[in-house]
C-alpha cells in the first residue's frame, strides 16, 4: 500500500498551486542571488589588486540556498497543513501517511535542492569566468560537486523537517513562521551573540551544515561525521515528533 500512498501524496502536491508558487519563489531567489553575484563581480573588477585579495568568496549558495531551503521546506509543510483533512479517511494508518508525506517531500527537496544548487553553480561559473580565488570558490568545476550534492541533501532534510513541524503545529502560519525562524532568522540573530555562543549556535543550524559536511573552508565547530549526525538528527527528531503528535491527536 505504501507505494500507492506515496503516489497519491505526489499527486496531491502536483495538483495544488502552492507547490508551483513555492518553486517559482525558489527560482526567483536564485535569480536574485545571481544578480547580487554579478554586482559583486563588477565591484571586484573595479577594485585594486590589494583590495581584490580581501574579497570574500562568491559562493552563491551561501546567500541563495537558505531561501531555497525555506521555499522547498514550505512545500513539505503544506503537504500536511494545507488541507483541513490530512488524508486519514483514505489512509488511516497515521505513521504510514506521515512517512509517505515525508518521503515525497524529501524526494522533492532532493531534486529541487540539487537543481537550484546546480543552476547557482552554472550561473556562478559563467559569471566568474577565470577570476581567481578567493573570489572564485571553485577554480575547477569538479570542486563544486560536493557542495551541490550536500546542498540537495540538506534541502531534502529541510523538507522533512517541514512535514514534521506541520504535524506538530497543525497550522500553516505557525509552521512557516517556525521554519523561517529556523532557516532565515536564527542565522542572523546568532551574529548578535558573543563569538563563542555565535559559533556554537551557528554550527548546528541547517544552512551551515553544508560546508561542514563537504569539508569546505568554514569557521564552524563540527567534524564531517559530526555534521552528518546533526543533519540526521534534524530528520529523526522531526519524524518522531510528527509521528507522536499525529498519532495521539483527534482529527476533525
Amino acid at each position: 500500500m505504501s507505494t500507492d500512498v506515496m503516489a497519491a501524496e505526489w499527486l496531491k502536491l502536483r495538483t495544488v498551486r502552492s507547490t508551483s508558487a513555492f518553486l517559482v519563489a525558489a527560482a526567483a531567489a536564485t535569480l536574485l542571488g545571481m544578480t547580487l553575484l554579478f554586482l559583486l563581480i563588477q565591484a571586484f573588477d573595479a577594485a585594486t589588486t590589494a583590495e581584490q585579495a580581501n574579497f570574500e568568496t562568491a559562493d552563491p549558495t551561501v546567500v541563495i540556498m537558505p531561501f531555497v531551503m525555506f521555499f522547498i521546506g514550505a512545500i513539505g509543510a503544506l503537504s500536511i497543513t494545507g488541507s483541513p483533512d490530512p488524508g486519514l479517511l483514505a489512509v488511516p494508518h497515521r505513521r504510514l501517511l506521515l512517512a509517505s508525506k515525508a518521503a515525497v517531500s524529501g524526494a522533492i527537496g532532493l531534486l529541487a535542492g540539487g537543481a537550484f544548487a546546480l543552476l547557482s553553480f552554472i550561473g556562478a561559473r559563467l559569471l566568474l569566468g577565470d577570476r581567481p580565488p578567493p573570489l572564485n570558490p571553485w577554480p575547477e568545476w569538479t570542486d563544486a560537486l560536493p557542495t551541490i550534492g550536500c546542498t540537495a541533501l540538506v534541502v531534502a532534510v529541510t523538507s522533512v523537517v517541514g512535514v514534521g513541524l506541520g504535524a506538530v503545529l497543525r497550522s500553516t502560519a505557525a509552521t512557516l513562521l517556525t521554519l523561517g525562524g529556523l532557516i532565515l532568522v536564527a542565522p542572523t540573530l546568532a551574529h548578535f551573540l558573543p563569538t563563542v555562543w555565535h559559533l556554537r549556535l551557528a554550527t548546528v543550524l541547517l544552512p551551515n551544515l553544508t560546508p561542514q559536511i563537504t569539508g569546505a573552508d568554514h569557521p564552524y565547530l563540527l567534524s564531517r561525521p559530526g555534521a552528518v549526525v546533526v543533519l540526521a538528527g534534524y530528520m529523526i527528531v522531526a519524524l518522531v515528533a510528527g509521528a507522536l503528535a499525529l498519532g495521539r491527536r483527534d482529527v476533525s
Binding site: E9, L11, G87, A90
Partner: peptide, 11 residues
Amino acid sequence: HHLACLARSNR
C-alpha cells in the same frame, strides 16, 4: 483531482 488523489491512495 481531489477524487483522483483519494482513488490513487486506495488503488
